[in-house]
Write a protein that binds this DNA or RNA. Structure first.
Length: 933
RNA sequence: GCACCUUUAGCUCAGUGGUAGAGCGUUCCGUUCACAUCGGAAAGGCCGUAGGUUCGAUCCCUACAAGGUGCACCA
């Protein structure tokens, strides 16, 4: 396993560009990143202790930045160190779908390039675009991870949105739901009116803003606000119970006040939430659009009325202002209040914080919405717990679990000051809203019975049925009522059918059942080509027979027959009634369901037929069914059949919740969803090789290494999820590195133009230099200021190491004849080297990689090169054979040890040198023994 | 408002209860030597300010100041 012999290798200065690619291939071909291979090839003992890190999965939102590079460098150092120490070492890589972040990037591109929104494309098509983008990002990221020399085990690569992780997410959700920790409720949530989704508390960024502060007369009181446009529904006057100024007002007292749109019956509420020292000490509340107000309203059982809709438009309660956007309404409302003489005064420059969505920057508008939450305060019985202080079978809460995991010492956070930050966060933690109204992510694994709406939390789908309307026809185009008459698909219609086929291609369709009318048959055949499924025709799925109405335009038809006037309408004499149609289609559907219920089936039918079929299966009223569920040609609708029918009405047709889960839900189980949970969690055996035993071998992981900026987002949630699901901790140590900033300490950002790209640095100075520049001087938890100059400095060091090796090896030093007698001086040098090795090991064990790197750097350059080698030149030229032999051997030993010590920090150059050592003790330095036991 | 962090050479940062160290930068000298991607040398610091503990403080304690971060509040 030697490098393709480069001609006169040591004559040239070290070229990272030339050798890094070769070294990389050498490592990858060896397979040593996979611990099973290490055991198999005898590099690691079968009973060696294991050491594992799961790579924090980078978001598939583009490319890796310096922060990722720092993370990779630190983890690779730990991993290579432990691998060399003989541990069974696993570093498991993966990527994160990053739901909202990725979707938001794609939406932005879509708007910019095609002026379209996601709704213009539809869910399926949009998701295809996102997946395409995610795939490209993923490939870029893999290339970057490799270029850094990160010795991850690619055979175990995972993705937060792949099949195995999806099963893990569904399983986790069900377990939490069954324990009563996941609930669905109407609660106030952070609503992003632009992205049309909820956002969790942690994803909000507060930005200071200066606005005028208005004081208004409200009955006998003065109230203040920045946002008069939200105040239409304010009918509760809140004041502190101890406020002497208002002691004549009693709790619950009512009074009529003049307000924006006339008189309002207002009610006095006494509550401690009112701050006596703020303004007049009196406030009115808007419970539907403010967290605090909502809490007050709940406490006192007050009415809660929505004022603003999901798009920021004022609702009818706003009277004249209804239908306007809040941003436009503010000056108008102000104007009206002023004209009514209710504006008391305006204070300019009031500083307050505005909540923004940190992904996309839109102002958050609190709304009350039906969402899914994780209850962090509810007591539950934990079946099994290894967390000290929490006994198996005892009652606990998720909050307590999170706190105990750290304060018991089961998890150590470095630097330890972050433990206090962590507790502080737990103390302020509220229920976690886990549902998002975006499309990219794990669908919420909850199904609602189509018939009675009963929810079912069940991971087992028996089959999926899809209803597809035929593609566009001539008659559709000319707005002609077809009924059983037929016209062929237009070009457009065929394209639509093809697109439907694309969507259904990966759904394992086994059968297509189509109406026997030509337009459906044609559509079905196109879909059959894409899916490979067989087509069966059934006249039962024909369109409604329109009798004398067939061939009329919609308008003429409407005039003569008004076809939906009532359920049993038979105006056209021989026309089929809607009741008859519903009956016919439903029977056809029931018949096929009975025979093919276990298969994934596509039904190709007509607009009318699908509508009345859905009326039946969704148990809709005639009135509800008048709103057509299918609007476009070749639109795909899906129904899920579950293994277990509805316990309430025994129907087996369900519809999945259309929301997706917060990306951190799947990230929260990352340490074990990647290690075979739940599929192999039971059967995994400790000490046995292979991924199916990973769960027993590598969980809990040893270290979670990440930036301190995602302590709450991620670290805390992993502790929560692991604590609940496994009764253990996800990792024993948390190592938080600092953020990489520019030379002036500013955050790197596109707009500042101060981004240093890792790949560029690797290209110019080599991966070794890039790695060192991110590690030396980077003490835990403190930010690193990076400049290109720094990187260049470490390139010089790589070159120095190369030249040291060149000198030593060319001076005739060699490792054979280990019994060589050392001179007194040389014994001391060997001892000194071993001392350094010990120091470095200790620093790494203490997560002080900065000190370890600094120590080895210093030793190699200023001790070994500047002093030991310089001092050797004379000795090697002397005629004292014993001294020469001793020194040659000593130089070899110091070089050998230095290379091993340096390897975790700068793997490429050290491996390149290693390959030039004639009598090296292991083929690859990557799996050579660490010089300290 | 509460908490945390930082403050040491021009810059970036280590560090220790016994009056300070590295890298980069600066200045000077040096190349037939493994390396000019180099070697040697030098200049440069009342270790944020004020108190306290101590025989002794850059280090421990208190207060303050400046910069930063997190959390909460924001009618």
């Amino acid at each position: 396993m030697k490098l393709p012999k480069a001609p006169e290798p040591f004559l040239k200065p070290y070229s990272s560009k030339e050798s890094e690619q070769q070294i990389l291939e050498l490592w990858e071909k060896s397979g040593f990143a996979n611990p099973d291979v290490c055991v198999e090839k005898g590099v690691t003992a079968p009973d060696a202790p294991s050491y594992s890190i799961v790579l924090p999965p980078p978001n598939v939102t583009g490319t890796l930045h310096m922060g990722h590079a720092a993370m990779l460098a630190v983890q690779d150092i730990l991993i290579r160190y432990h691998r060399m120490r003989g541990d069974k070492t696993l570093w498991l890589p993966g990527t994160d779908h990053a739901a909202i972040a990725t979707q938001s990037v794609v939406e932005k591109d879509l708007l910019k390039a095609e002026k379209k929104t996601r709704h213009d494309l539809g869910r399926e098509e949009f998701l295809k675009r996102v997946e395409q983008f995610a795939k490209e990002s993923h490939d870029t990221i893999v290339g970057q991870v490799r270029a850094m020399g990160a010795s991850v085990d690619w055979t175990r690569e995972a993705y937060t949105l792949d099949e195995a992780r999806n099963l893990a997410v569904r399983t986790a959700f069900k377990k939490m739901y069954d324990a009563g920790l996941i609930y669905r409720g109407n609660r106030i949530v952070n609503w992003d009116p632009k992205m049309q989704t909820t956002v969790s508390d942690d994803e909000i960024e507060y930005v200071e803003q200066k606005d005028p502060f208005y004081y208004f007369k409200y009955g006998p009181f003065i109230i203040g606000t920045v946002r008069p446009e939200t105040k239409f529904g304010d009918k509760y006057i809140v004041m502190h119970p101890d406020d002497a100024r208002y002691k004549e007002y009693k709790d619950g007292q009512q009074m009529e006040v003049e307000w924006i749109n006339g008189k309002i019956m207002a009610t006095i509420v006494k509550d401690e939430a009112a701050d006596m020292s703020f303004g007049s000490g009196v406030m009115t509340i808007t419970p539907a659009h403010s967290g605090i107000d909502f809490e007050i309203a709940q406490k006192h059982k007050l009415d809660v009325e929505q004022i603003i809709n999901e798009r920021g438009i004022l609702l009818p309660i706003a009277g004249d202002f209804a239908g306007q956007h809040i941003k436009k309404a503010r000056p108008l409302v102000l104007e009206k209040l002023k004209n009514k003489g209710l504006l008391v005064k305006v204070e300019e420059g009031y500083v307050h914080n505005v909540a923004l969505n940190s992904r996309g920057g839109e102002t958050i508008e609190p709304q009350i919405k039906l969402q899914w939450f994780v209850d962090v305060n509810k007591k539950f019985t934990i079946p099994r717990s290894e967390i000290p202080g929490i006994a198996s079978g005892s009652q606990t809460t998720l909050k307590e679990l999170m706190r105990r995991a750290v304060d018991s010492g089961a998890i150590k956070i470095a630097p330890d000051r972050f433990e206090r930050v962590y507790y502080n966060w737990i103390d302020n933690l509220r229920d976690w809203c886990i549902s998002r109204q975006i499309w990219y992510g794990h669908r919420i694994p909850v199904w609602y019975c189509l018939n009675c709406k009963q929810p079912a939390i069940d991971a087992e789908i028996k089959s999926r049925w899809f209803l597809v309307r035929h593609g566009e026809t001539e008659a559709n185009l000319n707005r002609i009522t077809q009924g059983h008459q037929d016209t062929p698909l237009t070009e457009q219609g065929m394209a639509q059918a093809k697109s439907a086929g694309e969507q259904l291609k990966n759904q394992d369709i086994e059968l297509i059942i189509s109406s026997d009318l030509g337009r459906c048959k044609q559509t079905a055949e196109i879909i059959a080509r894409a899916t490979g499924a067989e087509v069966v025709l059934d006249a039962g799925f024909r369109e409604r027979f329109m009798g004398d109405g067939e061939g009329l335009t919609y308008e003429e038809h409407e005039k003569r027959f008004s076809p939906f006037k009532d359920y049993d309408d038979k105006t056209a004499g021989n026309m089929e009634t809607t009741r008859e149609l519903e009956e016919r289609v439903s029977q056809a559907f029931a018949k096929h369901k009975k025979i093919h219920g276990h298969k994934n089936v596509v039904i190709v039918s007509h607009g009318g037929s699908i509508r009345w079929l859905l009326k039946r299966v969704k148990n809709l009223t005639f009135e509800q069914a008048k709103i057509p569920p299918v609007k476009g040609n070749a639109e795909v609708q899906s129904l899920d059949m579950l293994q277990t029918p509805c316990p309430k009405c025994s129907n087996d047709l369900f519809e999945q919740d259309s929301d997706t889960l917060d990306t951190w839900f799947s990230s929260g189980i990352w340490t074990f969803s990647t290690l075979g949970w739940p599929s192999f969690a039971q059967s995994a055996m400790k000490g046995r090789p292979g991924p199916e035993n990973d769960f027993a071998n590598y969980h809990p992981t040893d270290v979670l290494e990440t930036g301190y900026d995602i302590l709450f987002f991620w670290v805390a949630r992993m502790i929560l999820m692991t604590g609940f699901l496994l009764g253990t901790v996800p990792f024993r140590n948390v190592y938080l590195h600092g953020l990489v900033r520019d030379a002036r300490g500013r955050k790197m950002s596109k707009s500042l133009g101060n981004i240093i790209d890792p790949l560029t640095m690797i290209e110019k100075y080599g991966a070794d230099a890039a790695r060192l520049s991110l590690v030396v001087g980077a003490s835990p938890g403190n930010d690193v200021k990076l400049s290109e100059n720094r990187v260049r400095g470490y390139k010089h060091f790589a070159n120095k190491v190369w030249n040291i090796s060149r000198f030593v090896l060319e001076s005739g030093a060699e490792g054979r004849g280990t019994n060589a007698e050392y001179t007194q001086k040389d014994s001391e040098l060997i001892a000194e080297t071993q001392n350094i090795a010990k120091t470095i090991s200790e620093h790494i064990d203490n997560f002080r990689l900065d000190l370890a790197a600094d120590a080895i750097y210093h030793f190699v350059w200023h001790r070994f090169a500047d002093e030991i080698i310089e001092g050797s030149k004379l000795i090697l030229k002397s005629r004292d054979a014993v001294a020469v032999a001793s020194r040659r051997h000593t130089l070899y030993m110091i070089l050998d040890t230095s290379l091993r010590l340096l390897h975790p920090f700068m793997p490429f150059v050290t491996e390149a040198i290693w390959q030039q050592i004639p009598d090296r003790k292991s083929d690859l330095l990557m799996v050579a023994k660490w010089p300290v036991i």
